[in-house]
Nucleic acid binder design. Structure first.
Lengths: 244, 244
DNA sequence: AAGCAATGGTTCTCTGTCATACCTTATGCC
DNA sequence: GGCATAAGGTATGACAGAGAACCATTGCTT
């Protein structure tokens, strides 16, 4: 992306005319891998899919993927080990993730209000859809995810919470919804990393999780949506308070 | 995109690991321009933004954009005129859009259930958000869009209907929601083109539009969401019926 | 009638990305 | 100990796409 002209002035067509391939093309891949980490889909200590696998999934060449991983290595977010049973491993989060690196640039470019509103819409919608009809194996997955949050230790709570919500989104029956939720949740987690985790909020959160899941299992869409909106509203108020 | 191996087997990480740059890169641009047409944001007879403008918005080179326009010209969807005050103009839809062209391929690859569910979630969410708080100028835009649907002739109804819903999405206060709605609505319109437009449904639709807008202006989020869900449910039932 | 300005049409070069093949390292199994 | 295997590391050639410069056409303005 060489030095062309600046951004064109905004017009009424901007809902549709968003850029194809936001950024260097490789940045989009970076974004996706970052999602993997921020969502905790691959927890610290675990191995990412091999370079050959990942590059196939993302439909980019291995060379380009390696450049992405290089950035993450420089940020001490992952570590690569060679040899059989080697791979790229996720490192535990370090306190200060380097204030001037290749990353970090996108933070603060996030539209917080957009994120919070969109999140609430997707969550409430997913909860409602799940309550309207859920396969039997869906019930099990949901219960399992809820149990995992109950037993989670403090440092693992964010991850289990994310996985519970992600499960709900996947069970909604809309792949697009699930994918969009994953994206917005990754952004949300990034924001949440900037504020303290209060045990009091956490307990309240857990009650709400239980209520939502119960409403879903009771096949009560209105209650599920309502509870979920309340749940999201709590996080939103917290974030608005700390970031205001 | 040369002939690599086939798709990798699906895994639990697929919500996140969707391909970067779906398709030839230029196909994504084609998709966006098609949205512009399918949403009726540029009605028949009107001019698209100039090639230089469009390519900047989409962040693709003018050469690539021209290949996209070439495809649309071959499909008799647009027409280019040179000289000052020239440009690329939208042609009225022809009955049979050529059954085997460069386009047409994506149709039937649409996951109808995904589309309908995701649409309902976004619409209900947008209606709710608007009802929670809408700027004064938002009220005017909304009323204007509603009025336009009232006075629309049959062949222009789809377009005005789309614009009304799009307005609601834009007023939701989430740019992401608006963009996602635009995408899903474009897909929906494509599906709707395949089924007849019944005057009876249309009148019912109009009553619901009015009810939704009233609920929004009354600042009644629950009613707005409920009405909108009903409205979407109608379309969904219609489509499921015809496509089953 | 002449000139100007904005548009589509064309051509060039250069960079990023892809696909492929091969090298290197570490581990388990025989 | 030796070998097969699976992973990361490296090098190369081909191509798509970006960017910029230029040409051709048209209609408004002077």
């Amino acid at each position: 992306m060489a030095g062309g002209a600046g951004d064109p002035p905004p017009g009424p067509l901007d809902s549709v005319l968003r850029p194809v391939r936001a950024g260097n093309g490789f940045e989009e891949a970076l974004e996706q891998v970052l999602q993997l980490l921020r969502l905790g889909l691959v927890p610290p200590g675990e191995r990412l899919p091999s370079e050959r696998e990942l590059s196939q999934h993302l439909r980019i060449s291995r060379v380009t993927l390696r450049e992405v991983l290089k950035v993450l290595q420089d940020q001490n977010m992952v570590e690569s080990r060679r040899g059989r049973y080697g791979g790229t491993f996720v490192l535990p989060r370090t306190a200060a993730p380097d204030g001037s690196g290749e990353l970090r640039r996108r933070i603060a470019a996030v539209d917080v209000e957009d994120t919070l509103r969109f999140r609430e819409v997707l969550e409430a919608g997913a909860a409602g859809l799940c309550a309207e009809g859920l396969a039997a194996d869906g019930e099990d997955r949901l219960r399992g995810a809820l149990d995992a949050t109950q037993g989670a230790r403090l440092e693992d709570y964010r991850r289990q919470d994310t996985l519970l919500h992600l499960t709900l989104a996947e069970l909604s029956g809309s792949r697009t919804l699930a994918a969009q939720y994953a994206a917005v949740r990754a952004t949300l987690n990034e924001l949440l990393d900037g504020i303290p985790l209060l045990v009091r909020n956490l307990e309240h959160s857990q009650q709400q999780h239980t209520a939502v899941v119960e409403a879903v299992l009771d096949r009560d869409p209105d209650a599920a949506r309502e509870m979920m909106r309340e749940h999201c509203g709590g996080t939103a108020a917290l974030l608005r308070g700390f970031l205001a």
